[in-house]
């Protein structure tokens, strides 16, 4: 295709236009004067868009294309650049390193450092234990502290009933401990152990004489009913000096063991009532001061006494005196 000459845009000479002629004359005059450098008079610029420009213009006015170019294409371009950069393993590693470094810098700022640990409400031995199991090297960033994990660890100690952990202002790790208080000594399969009111193990005991103030319980399943045992002991206060301990029998009922091998057998149900009955009898008739081997309250409406051999003999003698017979 031949190039289009803008002169053709002018109206044809038949239309009466002499523009081309005059333009040609002017051109000839200019060349005759040797004025080649001066630019030709500006021909009217062709206002028509080129075919490609026209097509592109229409494409640009297409709403879907416009939306794509203005909203989706930039996102794609940025995502593509980032993706290409991350496709290189070195770049990825450098990025991760930088992130980790910045994170570490921030975490290690003095504002976030924990310098010491304060333990409240724990005995010396227990605090030693706590320090041992948490095993923290101060100073330490508070981001590195695993407070829930430490709380679990501390609460797993037998002597700890409840614990609270927090990082106090001034970089102090505050640990509030509520200790378990031992209520009874239990003679179990693993030796002597102290139990609290709920029957939870507090600590092992070397010798009974270490804690003479605590009552002793024994028998299989005794540790599961510490509360009942304590209630029985409470009811047995008047005979406390004589009390040796409580024995769980058959994992269902209690025997109260006194000195002189006296035993008070309590029923399965309502042992407190039976105990109160025995205490009343004791106070009224000094029952336990007599030569009784066992007080059987397993049937509360029919208490039974078991006498010692000597008492039995004495009783028989007295009865024979009463009856006037001798069975010997």
């Amino acid at each position: 295709m031949r190039p289009i000459d803008p002169v053709e845009f002018a109206k044809a000479p038949t239309m009466g236009g002499s523009a081309r002629v005059s333009e040609a004359v002017a051109r000839a005059l200019r060349t005759r004067l040797g004025d080649t450098s001066s630019h030709a008079p500006a021909r009217p610029r062709d206002p028509a868009p080129s075919r490609a420009a026209y097509r592109f213009n229409r494409l640009w006015l297409t709403p879907s294309f416009r939306f794509f170019m203005r909203r989706i294409a930039p996102v794609l371009a940025i995502a593509g650049c980032v993706g290409l950069w991350f496709a290189d393993a070195d770049n990825r590693m450098a990025f991760n390193d930088t992130v980790a470094e910045v994170k570490r810098d921030i975490q290690n700022r003095p504002e976030f450092m924990v310098k010491l640990m304060a333990i409240d409400g724990a005995s010396g031995e227990l605090s030693e234990d706590i320090r041992e199991i948490t095993s923290l090297d101060f100073p330490l960033s508070s981001f590195d502290l695993d407070l829930p994990g430490m709380l679990e660890q501390i609460e797993s100690l037998d002597a700890v009933a409840e614990a609270g952990l927090r990082v106090r202002a001034g970089g102090i790790l505050q640990i509030d401990i509520t200790e378990r208080t031992p209520a009874v000594v239990w003679r179990g399969p693993h030796g002597l152990e102290m139990l609290d009111v709920d029957g939870h193990r507090v600590a092992a005991l070397e010798h009974r004489v270490d804690r003479p103030d605590l009552p002793l319980i024994a028998g299989v399943g005794a540790e599961r009913d510490v509360a009942e045992a304590l209630a029985i002991l409470n009811a047995a206060k008047p005979i406390m000096p004589r009390l040796r301990g409580l024995v769980r029998v058959g994992e269902r009922r209690w025997n109260v063991v006194l000195d002189r091998d006296q035993v008070i057998m309590l029923p399965e149900e309502n042992p407190l009532g039976a105990m109160a009955q025995v205490m009343a009898l004791d106070q009224a008739k000094d029952l336990l001061g007599r030569d009784v081997k066992a007080v059987d309250m397993r049937r509360p409406n029919r208490p039974t006494l078991q006498l010692t051999e000597a008492a039995q003999d004495e009783m028989r003698r007295l009865q024979s005196v009463e009856l006037g017979v001798s069975f010997r």
Binding site: A10, K11, M15, G16, G17, S18, A19
Partner: peptide, 17 residues
């Protein structure tokens, strides 16, 4: 109208514009 223009252009010896 263009014929009127061309008449003027021819009659007065001037460009069509």
């Amino acid at each position: 109208g263009d014929h009127v223009t061309s008449d003027i252009a021819m009659g007065l010896q001037i460009p069509a514009a």
